[in-house]
Computed example of a mutant assay.
Amino acid sequence: MITAQDTDELRGWITGRLPDGLYASPVEVTVDREEICVVGAIPEPAGLGKDVTGAERDAALDGRIAEFRERTRKERMAVARAAERRYRRKVSWGAECGGRREVFTNVSAPVMTRLRQPQRQVLDTLIEAGVARSRSDALGWCVRLVETHADDWLRELRDSLAHVRHVRAQGPDRDGEPADAEGGA
């Protein structure tokens, strides 16, 4: 399990290791068991006036993100190699520009699950409807659907988990070992 202290230390290390000026503001660092994802804001292209069309603005933002990705690849990969050695996780990168967010690479980690027949039938229906090519693809589609429509609920759940971790860290069993059931340590 990744503790809040582990995550804080990792975020601090990544922030300290990034070259100054790589991103326009502090980066967002998200961590799980397989991956560290680093996303930061980059400046919008100069010359985007209020009179540009939506298509022109979208193309300019896409172009700026692509330019940033190419120009900073060497620096980002140096940080990624060091972080992967230190934390034994892959590093993914992304950028935000003008409200557009693009993550360049992501780890696609297999997840094993057991489903009962009604849940398998949901996946099979998605396959039959052409929404997905396989049960694995259908399950990923379902997770993305929940992620899209449950942002507030998931955010509240994550905040609650962070609070539980904080409260646990303040308790008497800071070494992670619970006290003996008979009252001894």
Rank of each mutant, 00 (worst) to 15 (best):
T3N: 08
A4M: 13
Q5K: 15
Q5V: 12
D6Y: 04
D8L: 15
L10Q: 12
L10C: 15
L10N: 03
G12K: 14
G12H: 14
G12F: 15
W13Q: 08
I14C: 05
R17V: 08
L18R: 03
L18N: 04
A24R: 12
V27W: 06
E28W: 10
V29Q: 04
R33P: 02
E34S: 14
E35A: 14
I36L: 15
I36N: 02
I36R: 03
C37N: 08
C37Y: 03
V39Y: 05
I42P: 00
E44Y: 02
E44V: 08
P45G: 12
A46Q: 11
A46M: 05
L48Y: 08
L48R: 08
G49R: 09
K50F: 15
V52M: 12
V52E: 06
V52L: 14
G54L: 06
A55C: 01
A55W: 04
A55V: 05
E56N: 04
R57C: 05
D58W: 09
A60E: 03
D62K: 15
A66K: 14
E67K: 13
F68W: 08
R69C: 07
T72F: 05
T72P: 01
R73M: 09
E75W: 11
A78L: 13
V79P: 01
R81P: 00
A82L: 07
A83T: 06
A83C: 10
A83W: 01
A83Y: 02
A83V: 06
A83Q: 03
E84P: 03
R86T: 05
R88M: 03
K90W: 13
S92D: 10
W93V: 02
W93G: 00
A95T: 06
E96Y: 03
C97M: 03
C97D: 05
R100V: 04
R101P: 00
V103C: 07
V107L: 10
P110A: 11
V111W: 01
M112Q: 11
T113P: 00
L115Y: 15
R116P: 01
Q119Y: 14
Q119L: 13
L123M: 05
T125F: 07
T125S: 13
L126I: 00
L126V: 00
E128N: 08
A129M: 12
V131K: 08
A132P: 00
S134P: 00
S136Q: 08
A138C: 02
L139F: 06
V143L: 09
V146N: 02
V146Y: 07
E147R: 12
E147H: 05
T148Y: 03
T148R: 09
T148E: 04
H149K: 05
A150Q: 04
W153E: 10
W153S: 09
L154P: 00
E156Y: 14
E156L: 12
L157V: 14
V164F: 12
V164S: 10
V164G: 04
R165D: 14
R165Q: 15
H166S: 14
H166R: 14
R168K: 13
R168M: 09
P172W: 03
D175A: 14
E177G: 07
P178E: 12
P178A: 15
A179C: 10
D180S: 08
E182K: 05
E182N: 07
A185F: 06
